[in-house]
C-alpha cells in the first residue's frame, strides 16, 4: 500500500484495517501523532487528510486512499514553523505538550476553511482534549494566527 504522508509517497505493508495512527507511529516512525483514547474522543491523534482534521486512531488506513496525509511533522515549510505553530510558540501554549500536535492540526484545518474564525467557530471546531487546561491560550493563538493570515501568511 502507498500513502502520501507529509509530501512524500511511502510504501507500507500493513493490514487494511489498521488505523492510520498506528501506521504513522509504528510503520513510518512519525511519533508526533499521539495515541490518547483509541476511539476518536480525545483528538491527540489528529492529522489532516486533505484539508480535513481527522482522528487517525479511528480511521482504517485503507480509507485514506490517495488523499494527502499531513502530520505535525509536515507543517513546517523550509524549516520554518507554520503560522499556526508560530502562534503557538509566541503565546507559549503548551504545558505538558502531549495534545498539542493534535490541537495545532485541528486549528490548521479550521483556519484553512475559515481564516477568520469567531469564538463560536473556535468552540465548534476545537474539540480536542487538553488535561493541562491550555484552552485559553489555544483560543488566543488561533486568533493571533488568523490576524497573521489576514496580513498575508499562509495557514
Amino acid at each position: 500500500m502507498r500513502l502520501l504522508v507529509d509530501g512524500e509517497w511511502r510504501a507500507v505493508e500493513v493490514e487494511p484495517e489498521r488505523p492510520l495512527l498506528w501506521v504513522l507511529r509504528d510503520a513510518l516512525g512519525l511519533t508526533g501523532t499521539k495515541y490518547g483514547c483509541g476511539i476518536g474522543l480525545c483528538g491527540a491523534c489528529t492529522v489532516l487528510v486533505g484539508d480535513e482534521a481527522v482522528r487517525s486512531c479511528a480511521l482504517p488506513v485503507s480509507a485514506v486512499g490517495d488523499r494527502p496525509v499531513t502530520t505535525v511533522a509536515g507543517l513546517a515549510r523550509d524549516g520554518e514553523p507554520s503560522v499556526v505553530q508560530q502562534a503557538w510558540i509566541d503565546l507559549e501554549v503548551p504545558q505538558c505538550g502531549y495534545c498539542q500536535p493534535g490541537q495545532v492540526l485541528a486549528a490548521t484545518a479550521l483556519l484553512r476553511r475559515n481564516p477568520a474564525p469567531t469564538d463560536a467557530d473556535i468552540d465548534r471546531a476545537m474539540t480536542n482534549l487538553c488535561r493541562c487546561g491550555t484552552y485559553g491560550r489555544i483560543r488566543a493563538a488561533i486568533h493571533l494566527a488568523a490576524r497573521r493570515i489576514a496580513d498575508g501568511a499562509r495557514p
Binding site: 501523532t33 499521539k34 507543517l75 507559549e92 501554549v93
Partner: peptide
C-alpha cells in the same frame, strides 16, 4: 523568557515515554 520545551512540543519532535524507540523493540 521563552520556555525551553515549547518549540519541540509544537513542532512534534518532543519525545514522550510512548515515543521511546529502540532498535528491534517489541510492543
Amino acid at each position: 523568557p521563552p520556555r525551553l520545551d515549547t518549540p519541540a512540543k509544537v513542532l512534534g519532535t518532543a519525545v514522550f515515554g510512548i515515543d521511546a524507540r529502540l532498535p528491534d523493540q517489541l510492543a
